[in-house]
Amino acid sequence: MNQLLQALINGVMLGGFYAIMVLGFSIIWGVMGVINLAHGEIVMMGAYGAWILQENLGMDPIFSVVIIFPVMMVFGYVVQRVLINRVIERPHMIALLVTFGLSIVISNVVKLRYSGTPRSVEGSMRGYWDLGSVTVPKTKTAILVAALIVMFVLHLFLKHSRLGKSIRAASQNREAARIVGIEIGRVYAITFAIAIGLTALAGAMIAPTQAVYPFMGGPLTLRAFTITALSGLGSIPGALFGGLAVGVIEVMLATFVPRVGTNVGIVSSFVLLVIVLVVRPQGLFGGLKPRSPQ
Protein backbone atom coordinates (compact mmCIF):
# COMPACT_ATOMS: atom_id res chain seq x y z
CA MET A 1 0.00 0.00 0.00
CA ASN A 2 2.76 2.40 0.97
CA GLN A 3 4.64 1.40 -2.10
CA LEU A 4 1.60 2.15 -4.20
CA LEU A 5 1.11 5.53 -2.55
CA GLN A 6 4.77 6.35 -2.97
CA ALA A 7 4.65 5.36 -6.63
CA LEU A 8 1.59 7.51 -7.08
CA ILE A 9 3.35 10.49 -5.51
CA ASN A 10 6.44 9.96 -7.63
CA GLY A 11 4.26 9.58 -10.70
CA VAL A 12 2.44 12.81 -10.01
CA MET A 13 5.77 14.58 -9.51
CA LEU A 14 7.09 13.22 -12.78
CA GLY A 15 3.79 14.20 -14.36
CA GLY A 16 4.24 17.76 -13.15
CA PHE A 17 7.51 17.92 -15.03
CA TYR A 18 5.95 16.41 -18.16
CA ALA A 19 3.07 18.85 -17.94
CA ILE A 20 5.27 21.92 -17.93
CA MET A 21 7.67 20.39 -20.43
CA VAL A 22 4.94 19.60 -22.95
CA LEU A 23 3.22 23.00 -23.00
CA GLY A 24 5.46 24.65 -25.57
CA PHE A 25 5.30 21.65 -27.88
CA SER A 26 1.55 21.54 -27.62
CA ILE A 27 1.15 25.25 -28.36
CA ILE A 28 3.39 25.18 -31.42
CA TRP A 29 1.60 22.17 -32.81
CA GLY A 30 -1.83 23.53 -31.98
CA VAL A 31 -1.32 27.04 -33.28
CA MET A 32 0.84 26.58 -36.35
CA GLY A 33 0.54 22.90 -37.09
CA VAL A 34 4.28 22.32 -36.73
CA ILE A 35 5.52 19.28 -34.86
CA ASN A 36 8.74 20.51 -33.34
CA LEU A 37 11.15 17.61 -33.26
CA ALA A 38 13.78 19.87 -31.69
CA HIS A 39 11.57 20.26 -28.65
CA GLY A 40 13.66 18.07 -26.35
CA GLU A 41 16.75 19.98 -27.44
CA ILE A 42 15.13 23.22 -26.29
CA VAL A 43 14.49 21.62 -22.90
CA MET A 44 18.14 20.60 -22.93
CA MET A 45 19.23 24.16 -23.76
CA GLY A 46 17.20 25.46 -20.82
CA ALA A 47 18.83 22.91 -18.53
CA TYR A 48 22.26 23.86 -19.82
CA GLY A 49 21.35 27.50 -19.27
CA ALA A 50 20.65 26.72 -15.62
CA TRP A 51 23.93 24.84 -15.36
CA ILE A 52 25.97 27.62 -17.00
CA LEU A 53 24.43 30.32 -14.82
CA GLN A 54 25.09 28.24 -11.74
CA GLU A 55 28.68 27.47 -12.67
CA ASN A 56 29.54 31.03 -13.56
CA LEU A 57 27.33 33.15 -11.36
CA GLY A 58 26.30 30.67 -8.69
CA MET A 59 22.70 31.32 -9.60
CA ASP A 60 19.90 29.10 -8.35
CA PRO A 61 17.87 27.47 -11.16
CA ILE A 62 14.68 28.99 -9.75
CA PHE A 63 16.04 32.47 -10.35
CA SER A 64 17.94 31.71 -13.53
CA VAL A 65 14.64 31.25 -15.36
CA VAL A 66 14.33 35.03 -15.23
CA ILE A 67 17.28 35.21 -17.61
CA ILE A 68 16.68 31.99 -19.54
CA PHE A 69 13.07 32.72 -20.46
CA PRO A 70 13.69 36.01 -22.31
CA VAL A 71 16.94 34.82 -23.89
CA MET A 72 15.30 31.71 -25.26
CA MET A 73 12.32 33.73 -26.41
CA VAL A 74 14.68 35.73 -28.60
CA PHE A 75 16.23 32.49 -29.82
CA GLY A 76 12.77 31.12 -30.62
CA TYR A 77 11.80 34.30 -32.42
CA VAL A 78 14.88 34.13 -34.63
CA VAL A 79 14.43 30.42 -35.38
CA GLN A 80 10.82 31.04 -36.30
CA ARG A 81 11.67 33.92 -38.60
CA VAL A 82 14.59 32.21 -40.30
CA LEU A 83 13.33 28.63 -40.58
CA ILE A 84 9.88 27.79 -39.32
CA ASN A 85 8.01 30.65 -40.94
CA ARG A 86 9.16 29.45 -44.33
CA VAL A 87 7.79 25.96 -43.83
CA ILE A 88 4.46 26.60 -42.12
CA GLU A 89 2.52 26.74 -45.34
CA ARG A 90 4.32 23.76 -46.81
CA PRO A 91 3.55 20.10 -46.09
CA HIS A 92 4.06 18.79 -42.58
CA MET A 93 6.91 16.63 -43.67
CA ILE A 94 9.08 19.66 -44.43
CA ALA A 95 8.66 21.11 -40.96
CA LEU A 96 9.24 17.69 -39.45
CA LEU A 97 12.51 17.22 -41.32
CA VAL A 98 13.68 20.77 -40.69
CA THR A 99 13.11 20.54 -36.94
CA PHE A 100 14.69 17.08 -36.98
CA GLY A 101 17.77 18.63 -38.58
CA LEU A 102 17.65 21.43 -36.05
CA SER A 103 17.62 18.93 -33.18
CA ILE A 104 20.77 17.29 -34.51
CA VAL A 105 22.51 20.62 -34.94
CA ILE A 106 21.58 21.89 -31.47
CA SER A 107 22.55 18.75 -29.57
CA ASN A 108 25.85 18.44 -31.40
CA VAL A 109 26.76 22.09 -31.04
CA VAL A 110 26.16 21.76 -27.30
CA LYS A 111 28.21 18.60 -27.24
CA LEU A 112 31.04 20.29 -29.11
CA ARG A 113 31.04 23.26 -26.74
CA TYR A 114 30.41 21.56 -23.41
CA SER A 115 31.37 17.92 -24.15
CA GLY A 116 29.10 14.97 -23.64
CA THR A 117 29.74 14.73 -19.91
CA PRO A 118 26.52 14.66 -17.88
CA ARG A 119 26.28 17.73 -15.65
CA SER A 120 24.37 18.16 -12.47
CA VAL A 121 22.69 21.29 -11.22
CA GLU A 122 22.12 21.93 -7.53
CA GLY A 123 18.74 23.30 -6.60
CA SER A 124 18.27 25.26 -3.39
CA MET A 125 15.42 23.03 -2.39
CA ARG A 126 16.87 19.69 -1.57
CA GLY A 127 15.80 16.61 0.26
CA TYR A 128 12.40 15.28 1.19
CA TRP A 129 9.47 15.89 3.36
CA ASP A 130 9.11 12.74 5.34
CA LEU A 131 5.44 11.98 5.83
CA GLY A 132 5.93 8.82 7.82
CA SER A 133 5.37 6.03 5.38
CA VAL A 134 6.02 8.05 2.25
CA THR A 135 8.41 10.80 1.25
CA VAL A 136 7.80 13.80 -0.95
CA PRO A 137 10.76 15.25 -2.84
CA LYS A 138 10.89 19.03 -2.39
CA THR A 139 12.35 20.01 -5.76
CA LYS A 140 9.77 18.06 -7.67
CA THR A 141 7.00 19.53 -5.59
CA ALA A 142 8.30 22.95 -6.51
CA ILE A 143 8.24 21.95 -10.17
CA LEU A 144 4.67 20.75 -9.88
CA VAL A 145 3.60 23.99 -8.21
CA ALA A 146 5.48 26.03 -10.80
CA ALA A 147 3.82 24.04 -13.57
CA LEU A 148 0.41 24.89 -12.17
CA ILE A 149 1.29 28.57 -11.85
CA VAL A 150 2.72 28.77 -15.38
CA MET A 151 -0.35 27.06 -16.79
CA PHE A 152 -2.67 29.37 -14.95
CA VAL A 153 -0.83 32.45 -16.19
CA LEU A 154 -0.75 31.07 -19.72
CA HIS A 155 -4.44 30.35 -19.54
CA LEU A 156 -5.19 33.92 -18.46
CA PHE A 157 -2.91 35.22 -21.19
CA LEU A 158 -4.58 33.22 -23.96
CA LYS A 159 -8.05 33.92 -22.68
CA HIS A 160 -7.92 37.60 -21.93
CA SER A 161 -5.00 39.40 -23.54
CA ARG A 162 -5.27 40.88 -27.00
CA LEU A 163 -2.28 38.90 -28.21
CA GLY A 164 -3.65 35.73 -26.64
CA LYS A 165 -6.91 36.20 -28.49
CA SER A 166 -5.02 36.72 -31.75
CA ILE A 167 -3.13 33.50 -31.14
CA ARG A 168 -6.33 31.59 -30.59
CA ALA A 169 -7.88 33.14 -33.66
CA ALA A 170 -4.85 32.24 -35.76
CA SER A 171 -4.95 28.67 -34.56
CA GLN A 172 -8.58 28.29 -35.46
CA ASN A 173 -8.71 29.85 -38.86
CA ARG A 174 -5.69 31.39 -40.46
CA GLU A 175 -7.55 32.96 -43.37
CA ALA A 176 -10.29 34.43 -41.25
CA ALA A 177 -7.74 35.79 -38.80
CA ARG A 178 -5.93 37.40 -41.69
CA ILE A 179 -9.13 38.98 -42.93
CA VAL A 180 -9.91 40.58 -39.60
CA GLY A 181 -6.50 42.17 -39.70
CA ILE A 182 -4.35 39.92 -37.58
CA GLU A 183 -0.81 39.85 -38.86
CA ILE A 184 -0.37 36.10 -38.89
CA GLY A 185 3.39 36.03 -39.41
CA ARG A 186 3.97 38.17 -36.35
CA VAL A 187 1.50 36.21 -34.23
CA TYR A 188 3.20 32.97 -35.22
CA ALA A 189 6.65 34.35 -34.45
CA ILE A 190 5.56 35.58 -31.02
CA THR A 191 3.74 32.33 -30.28
CA PHE A 192 6.82 30.37 -31.21
CA ALA A 193 9.00 32.63 -29.08
CA ILE A 194 6.72 32.22 -26.06
CA ALA A 195 6.55 28.45 -26.54
CA ILE A 196 10.32 28.14 -26.82
CA GLY A 197 10.77 30.37 -23.77
CA LEU A 198 8.37 28.20 -21.79
CA THR A 199 10.07 25.02 -22.90
CA ALA A 200 13.51 26.29 -21.90
CA LEU A 201 12.04 27.47 -18.61
CA ALA A 202 10.81 23.93 -18.02
CA GLY A 203 14.30 22.67 -18.84
CA ALA A 204 15.90 25.01 -16.33
CA MET A 205 13.47 23.99 -13.63
CA ILE A 206 13.99 20.29 -14.05
CA ALA A 207 17.76 20.61 -14.31
CA PRO A 208 18.28 19.82 -10.60
CA THR A 209 16.30 16.60 -10.84
CA GLN A 210 18.19 14.87 -13.60
CA ALA A 211 21.47 14.56 -15.42
CA VAL A 212 21.99 17.28 -17.98
CA TYR A 213 23.66 16.14 -21.18
CA PRO A 214 23.48 17.00 -24.89
CA PHE A 215 21.37 14.03 -25.95
CA MET A 216 18.76 14.13 -23.19
CA GLY A 217 16.25 15.65 -25.62
CA GLY A 218 15.19 12.76 -27.87
CA PRO A 219 13.05 10.81 -25.40
CA LEU A 220 11.54 14.06 -24.15
CA THR A 221 10.36 14.96 -27.64
CA LEU A 222 8.71 11.58 -27.99
CA ARG A 223 6.97 11.97 -24.66
CA ALA A 224 5.86 15.46 -25.59
CA PHE A 225 4.37 14.03 -28.74
CA THR A 226 2.64 11.24 -26.86
CA ILE A 227 1.18 13.54 -24.25
CA THR A 228 0.03 16.09 -26.81
CA ALA A 229 -1.53 13.51 -29.05
CA LEU A 230 -3.15 12.05 -25.95
CA SER A 231 -4.54 15.25 -24.61
CA GLY A 232 -5.35 17.37 -27.65
CA LEU A 233 -3.32 20.06 -29.33
CA GLY A 234 -2.73 23.28 -27.46
CA SER A 235 -4.96 22.32 -24.58
CA ILE A 236 -3.65 23.49 -21.22
CA PRO A 237 -5.72 21.21 -18.99
CA GLY A 238 -4.92 18.49 -21.51
CA ALA A 239 -1.19 19.03 -21.04
CA LEU A 240 -1.64 18.88 -17.28
CA PHE A 241 -3.75 15.74 -17.14
CA GLY A 242 -1.92 14.08 -20.03
CA GLY A 243 1.40 14.79 -18.34
CA LEU A 244 0.16 13.46 -15.02
CA ALA A 245 -1.31 10.36 -16.64
CA VAL A 246 1.87 9.51 -18.51
CA GLY A 247 4.00 10.25 -15.43
CA VAL A 248 1.91 8.01 -13.18
CA ILE A 249 1.73 5.20 -15.73
CA GLU A 250 5.49 5.25 -16.26
CA VAL A 251 6.31 5.20 -12.56
CA MET A 252 3.72 2.53 -11.80
CA LEU A 253 5.09 0.28 -14.53
CA ALA A 254 8.68 0.87 -13.43
CA THR A 255 7.73 0.09 -9.82
CA PHE A 256 5.51 -2.91 -10.23
CA VAL A 257 6.66 -4.66 -13.35
CA PRO A 258 9.71 -6.66 -12.38
CA ARG A 259 13.09 -6.47 -14.07
CA VAL A 260 12.32 -3.74 -16.54
CA GLY A 261 13.24 -0.70 -14.51
CA THR A 262 12.94 2.76 -16.00
CA ASN A 263 13.53 1.57 -19.54
CA VAL A 264 9.92 0.63 -19.72
CA GLY A 265 8.97 4.30 -19.65
CA ILE A 266 9.58 4.94 -23.27
CA VAL A 267 8.02 1.64 -24.30
CA SER A 268 4.85 2.33 -22.35
CA SER A 269 4.72 5.82 -23.82
CA PHE A 270 4.86 4.30 -27.24
CA VAL A 271 2.19 1.73 -26.62
CA LEU A 272 0.00 4.44 -25.16
CA LEU A 273 0.69 6.62 -28.16
CA VAL A 274 -0.32 4.04 -30.72
CA ILE A 275 -3.44 3.12 -28.79
CA VAL A 276 -4.45 6.75 -28.50
CA LEU A 277 -3.73 7.55 -32.14
CA VAL A 278 -5.71 4.61 -33.37
CA VAL A 279 -8.57 4.74 -30.90
CA ARG A 280 -9.11 8.36 -30.03
CA PRO A 281 -7.31 10.50 -32.56
CA GLN A 282 -8.71 13.82 -31.44
CA GLY A 283 -7.17 13.50 -28.01
CA LEU A 284 -8.93 13.32 -24.71
CA PHE A 285 -9.42 17.04 -24.30
CA GLY A 286 -10.46 19.53 -26.93
CA GLY A 287 -7.97 22.34 -26.91
CA LEU A 288 -7.00 24.56 -29.78
CA LYS A 289 -8.25 23.36 -33.06
CA PRO A 290 -5.59 23.07 -35.71
CA ARG A 291 -6.25 24.72 -39.01
CA SER A 292 -9.08 23.09 -40.78
CA PRO A 293 -8.94 21.63 -44.27
CA GLN A 294 -9.26 24.16 -47.01
Binding site: G33, E89, R90, P91, H92, M93, A229, G232, L233, L277, V278, P281, Q282, G283, G286, K289, P290, R291, S292, P293, Q294
Partner: peptide, 12 residues
Protein backbone atom coordinates in the same frame (compact mmCIF):
# COMPACT_ATOMS: atom_id res chain seq x y z
CA UNK B 1 -1.39 17.80 -46.03
CA UNK B 2 -2.24 21.27 -45.33
CA UNK B 3 -5.77 20.27 -45.78
CA UNK B 4 -6.26 16.84 -44.56
CA UNK B 5 -4.60 15.81 -41.41
CA UNK B 6 -4.25 12.14 -40.87
CA UNK B 7 -7.30 10.12 -40.10
CA UNK B 8 -6.49 10.97 -36.63
CA UNK B 9 -7.11 14.56 -37.06
CA UNK B 10 -9.32 16.53 -34.82
CA UNK B 11 -9.84 18.75 -37.81
CA UNK B 12 -11.60 16.15 -39.85
Amino acid sequence: DRGARPTTSPAD
